[in-house]
Structures are given as C-alpha cells and as structure tokens.
Computed example of a mutant assay.
Amino acid sequence: MKIASKIVHAGRDKKWTGYSVNVPVVRASTVVFDTVSELKHATAKRGEQVPYYGRRGTQTHFAFSDAICELEGGAGCALYPCGAAAISGALLAFLQSGDHLLMVDTVYEPTRALCDKLLKNLGIETTYYDPLIGAGIKALIRPNTKVIFLESPGSITMEVQDVPAICAVAKAHNVLVMLDNTWASPLLFKPFAHGVDVSIQAATKYIVGHSDVMLGTASANEKYWPQLREASYLLGYCASADDVYLAARGLRTIGVRLAQHQQNTAQVLAYLQQRPEIARILHPSLPDHPGHAEFKRDFSGSNGLLSLVLKNGDAKAVTAFVEGMQFFKMGFSWGGYESLVTFNLNLQSIRTATVWPYAGPVVRLHIGLEDPADLIADLAAAFERFNNTLAS
C-alpha cells in the first residue's frame, strides 16, 4: 500500500470503527461484564487490545495506536497526555537508580530539565553528547549505560544524527535506543527500519496538526513493547478519547499538510537566503546544514520548522522583530497550520557538551499553510523593524 493510501486507511479496522468511516469516540472509565468468564478473559488479556478498564483504552485509543504503528512501525503504541509525558514515561519505563543515560546535547529543553532534576534525584546519571558523534558514541558507553536518547533533528539548531551508526553501536552493547521523532512525524523518518527501539512523538505537533490537542505517543519494537506498555499503565498515563479522536482525524491529512509545509518553506528559505542580516539558516534541507548527508540518506522529506542565526542584535532589536508580525505569532509549539515565531538570545545556556559558535540571537520560525508571499512580506517588515531599532 502506498503511503497516501495508508494514511487514509491505517487503524480503520472494522472491529474498532463498526460501520462508520471514523472510529467512534468511546469514553469510558468502568468497563462492565455480564459473566465471570468475560471478566476473566478481559483480565487475562488486559495488556492487549481488549476493553478492561478505561485507562487501558477503548476502541478509540486502539484504532489510533494501530494507525501510528502502521505508519511509523513498532509492535505497539502507548498514548500519553502530551509529548513531554511520552518522553518521561518512556525513560522511566527502562531506567532505574544506578543506571546511566546518554542524552543528545541538542535535546528539547524540558527533556534536559527532566534529566537534570527528576532523573538525577532518582539516582540516574545523564551524560550529554555531541549530536554529530555518530559511531563515536561507543567511547561514552559504560557498563551501566541503559539508554541512548536521540532527537533528530535536534531542537532549535536541528543537527541531524547518524541514527543507523548509533543504533549499531548500541545493539553491540545491548543498550536501548530511544528517538524523539516529532520533527519527522511518522511519515518522513522510519525509526524502526533504522534500528531504533522506542520512538516518541509529541502528537500535539504535526499529527494533530490544528493546535487544539495535547497528546504524546511512544511506540516500541517487539522486544521492548511489553515493558513500555506495562510501565506506562503503572505510571498512570492515559489520554482522553476526545483528544485521541481529534488526533486520528488530523492524521488523515498529515501527508498533504506536510507536503504544503515543505513547499511553503522552500519559498521562504529562498527569500531568507538573500537577507544580509542572517549569519546561518538552520534547516536540514540545506546542503551546508550539519547532518545534511544523513538527512538526504534517511529522510523522505522536510517540514516547516527552521531557525535563523542573526549576525548581531540585542533584546530590543529582537523584540522589534517578533512584535507586530501579522502572520507569525509568538508561541511555543509548532506543527499546526499556522506560522509561529520564538527566539533565544543565548543558546549556550542550554548546551553543555558542545560549544555554540555564534554570538547573535536565534529566531525560530514555523512556516505554516498561509500563502508564502504573505509570510515573506511579514518577514520583510520584521527585518525592517529590526534594522531600524539597531540603527536608533
């Protein structure tokens, strides 16, 4: 089945949908049984896709989990109330006191905080590593290393990791590999085909696609799925059937949305490459981007998230840039249909294993589904405000 067809039909098993196109929204806490035999069967199968108790899932949850597995791979998919919960739930499923975690230095800032605070307090040690280390990760593995965590492309600076090389080393040392695959979504990168054991998505982003639901997923291969599934249940993670339904609906259009995000971004990038204020554009599709060769090798496309490193500028000038934009609104998420802008004045503050080589501020953009001409005009006005403020 071609990917466009799979997007439309994934998870639409008649046992979940009945006679409707979409799976019904099945809200449940208690599941009731007519006979002791039914109750015993459900209890024995409670780790599988059998209604047992609301937190274990309903038809709505099972259909969506199946769809994610069909699109991304994996033997099973656990659902969480947000992407950060999926990350913490996955890590806590496989780490315990005395264990060692290798964490990529470009990781999502809340994941770094989780490592430096909660995991540290639980006696789990974290070592941050250069995202471009590749097979060199071997030198950092200790006897008590249990997990290597990847995020590719990385947050804000978006270096692309050599996932197959890292996974090969991890397998040789019996170390589990987790990947935050949110940037690529289930479409643009196939984690399990490249050796990843657990793949995590902030489904809030491109899967939902409409900026109206918080949701996370963690899928695992056959070896690790039973442990991830049971740990997630014991930690109390679950998601609203209404939110899961909206995520399933958003999933049906992810292919056409991502294609349009990519097309719009290409036009905006062509404009940005002409701007003299920019020291570096960070987007994996560009030939000079760190990890571009791996991106071309492993990914099937790109999306609308990119960062601009400005040559200079202070807080006042950056404020002038981001305030007053018509289409790019300030916000901390991305992956919806709208364009967004955020900024960071000191990236070194959230890096410990690598040195950030630029002194200028960084502006992150999400290119939405608006007309690229309008977005370019919005950016042109922003640069004008930025330059006028610097000159004043």
Rank of each mutant, 00 (worst) to 15 (best):
P143A: 02
I68G: 11
A248S: 14
S333T: 06
F94S: 00
P287V: 02
P191K: 04
F192N: 15
A203T: 10
V177S: 11
H261K: 12
L150M: 11
N121R: 02
T126P: 01
A170I: 13
V169I: 15
H41K: 11
Y245F: 15
R46G: 03
G255L: 10
R280D: 07
F189E: 09
A259L: 06
P51D: 10
W334V: 02
A139D: 15
A63W: 07
L140H: 04
R351I: 11
Q49K: 09
W334E: 09
M1I: 08
S307C: 08
N181F: 07
M214F: 13
L305N: 14
N22A: 10
F192I: 06
V196E: 12
R257Y: 14
V21H: 12
L114G: 02
P81Q: 10
P276W: 11
Y80T: 15
A84Y: 08
V175C: 13
E338H: 11
S185L: 08
S349N: 13
E109F: 14
K14F: 03
G83K: 09
A10F: 14
N346M: 08
A202T: 13
A28V: 06
P186R: 10
V256E: 12
Y128V: 11
E48T: 15
L345P: 05
R297I: 03
I281E: 03
D105M: 06
Q263C: 06
G291S: 08
V36L: 05
L140C: 11
N181E: 04
Y206H: 12
G336K: 10
L132H: 05
M330P: 05
I68M: 14
A86F: 13
L150Q: 07
S240W: 12
N388Y: 07
A377P: 04
D105C: 08
T319E: 03
S307E: 04
T17W: 08
G331W: 09
K205A: 14
M158W: 00
V32F: 00
L39A: 01
V147T: 12
G154D: 01
Y52E: 02
K316H: 15
V363F: 05
N344P: 06
Q262S: 11
G54M: 02
A381H: 06
N181R: 14
K120I: 03
L365C: 01
A231S: 08
H173A: 14
P276Y: 04
V107D: 05
L347C: 13
Y19H: 02
W183D: 05
A203D: 10
D314C: 09
G304R: 09
A241Y: 12
G304H: 12
I141D: 01
T204S: 10
G324A: 06
G216N: 05
L187E: 15
